[in-house]
Design a protein around this nucleic acid. Sequence first.
DNA 1: ATCTCTGCAAATGTTTTGCATCAGC
DNA 2: GCTGATGCAAAACATTTGCAGAGAT
Lengths: 133, 133
Amino acid sequence: MIRDESNVKGRRTSQRDAIRAVFDQAGRPLSPQEVLLAAKKRVPRLGIATVYRTVKGFVDEHFLATVDLPGEPPRYELAKLSHHHHFHCRSCGKAFDIPGCPGHMRLTTPAGFVVEEHEIVLYGRCPDCAKGK
Amino acid sequence: MIRDESNVKGRRTSQRDAIRAVFDQAGRPLSPQEVLLAAKKRVPRLGIATVYRTVKGFVDEHFLATVDLPGEPPRYELAKLSHHHHFHCRSCGKAFDIPGCPGHMRLTTPAGFVVEEHEIVLYGRCPDCAKGK
DNA sequence: ATCTCTGCAAATGTTTTGCATCAGC
DNA sequence: GCTGATGCAAAACATTTGCAGAGAT
């Protein structure tokens, strides 16, 4: 395939480069605030509005995907990751990726319901927090 | 045990009776707005602040449980329901209960993660919406 | 030079809170 | 009559938007 991996649109700015770099290095879903904090190290004057706008743009371009966990504000991660689920640490509140999927989630749904997708979220303690105590 | 099943605290008011009745008849998780709408039929002057305060109180009393679906504001349902999962209709946006659980969710979590709980959410079309089109 | 992107501040939408009044006990 | 509960409006938060100026092409 000759497709460009990142079908990035619009102009190239230091803010966008910074935000892109943050996600490339994150390895886990990030909230807008986490993005702002990390990207500010490269572009100190970065504003939260730019983070929201840029992240939304990246989602449209399929560079990022939205990660919605129950009761949590949206996080974002690289869209190129394959199907997987998430782990939410009850101690530090961070989200992590869990590779793979139990597949065939045969929850016997009541008659009439048409299931199109599923989402699984695990709760507990991440390695750092489990070790810590 | 001699504990009272409903350890209801505080005074009995028409507002609380109305909200309690709404949940007893709902049969599915409700958002604060849905509660307000339904309970207003019994207590027209009911305010949204009272709904939020009362629902939160009911959760503390374990009469209600919070139902958090990804990317959705919290909903609430009777706490006495046994372990189950939820279905979110992409057409009408309503939430439904799905009895049972696939159990042993053996997602092979990476080393170090301690799993304490899991949440499964199914997405698709509810009976009404599936039938409608 | 053009036109998009950015930062700031104001707007929005939702949930929470302060307070005077109302009502259960 | 006390004291907790309610309704209203203001406050708090998080996210979005308007706009003038900065910066990429």
